[in-house]
């Protein structure tokens, strides 16, 4: 087909996307939170002493950390779906969560005698933590990747990886309400492994599904 003929066809095609960009991301966000919540409550649910636990600084920190991760990844995911809107100036925000965590780990090492470090780091739930964060996050990750397909990510692997970080932050926020290992030492090791799994899956999903 000649290019000028193609242009005639494009000009005549006035069909709009069924869902406007302004509404699709809020819908996807709601669906992602809902799916994570369903998996969370159907499998593990919150710890029995969640009310008292929320008053301790270590538990509060877990939520600050996981929400900071999600909040820093979200605008980058959104920007990366639009060609030409460079997400790089937002990338430094991704350091916020790791820096918060580094500060918390340093504080914990000062506050707790060294013979207790290993016990706190290994905790009781390390295996569940590694498994459940990806399990809760995989549904939201699929929803975010599907929504990215509606956009036009010009760096599919990067978009997928950041989508994995966003799903990680969301999944870990739920998981943190269940897990009784509250030390930043535990969070720094076992949460991070779960995040790495979701980020890797996101990058792979980006490579496989975000071609357009």
């Amino acid at each position: 087909m000649k290019t000028r003929d193609l242009i005639k066809a494009l000009e005549a095609d006035t069909a709009r996307p069924r869902l406007a960009s302004g509404i699709i991301w809020p819908l996807a966000g709601g669906a992602a939170v809902l799916v994570a919540a369903v998996v969370f409550f159907a499998t593990i649910g919150p710890r029995s002493d969640i009310g008292d636990a929320m008053e301790t600084v270590r538990v509060q920190f877990k939520f600050v950390y996981t929400l900071a991760l999600a909040a820093s990844a979200l605008p980058i995911v959104l920007a990366s779906a639009r060609p030409g809107s460079s997400p790089w100036h937002l990338a430094p925000w991704l350091l916020a969560a790791p820096l918060l965590l580094a500060g918390a780990v340093a504080t914990e090492l000062i506050a707790v005698p060294s013979q207790e470090w290993a016990v706190r780091l290994i905790g009781k739930n390390w295996f569940y933590c590694m498994m459940l964060i990806p399990l809760i996050g995989i549904g939201p990750l699929a929803i975010i990747l599907a929504t990215l397909r509606h956009g036009a990510p010009t760096r599919p692997i990067f978009s997928g990886a950041v989508a994995g970080l966003l799903a990680s932050g969301l999944a870990a926020t739920f998981y943190a309400a269940h897990c009784t290992d509250d030390s930043p030492l535990f969070v720094a090791v076992w949460y991070t492994i779960g995040f790495a799994v979701l980020t890797g899956l996101g990058a792979l999903g980006g490579r496989l599904f975000l071609r357009w």
């Binding site: 193609l6 242009i7 709009r16 779906a81 639009r82 030409g84 357009w212």
Partner: peptide, 23 residues
């Protein structure tokens, strides 16, 4: 041209159009 057409909803009407096209 096809991609521009099918993805034209990803252009924000207040953003410059050429960086979007060249990306």
């Amino acid at each position: 041209l096809l991609a521009i057409h099918l993805k034209r909803h990803t252009w924000r009407t207040d953003a410059p159009v050429l960086p979007w096209v060249y990306a």
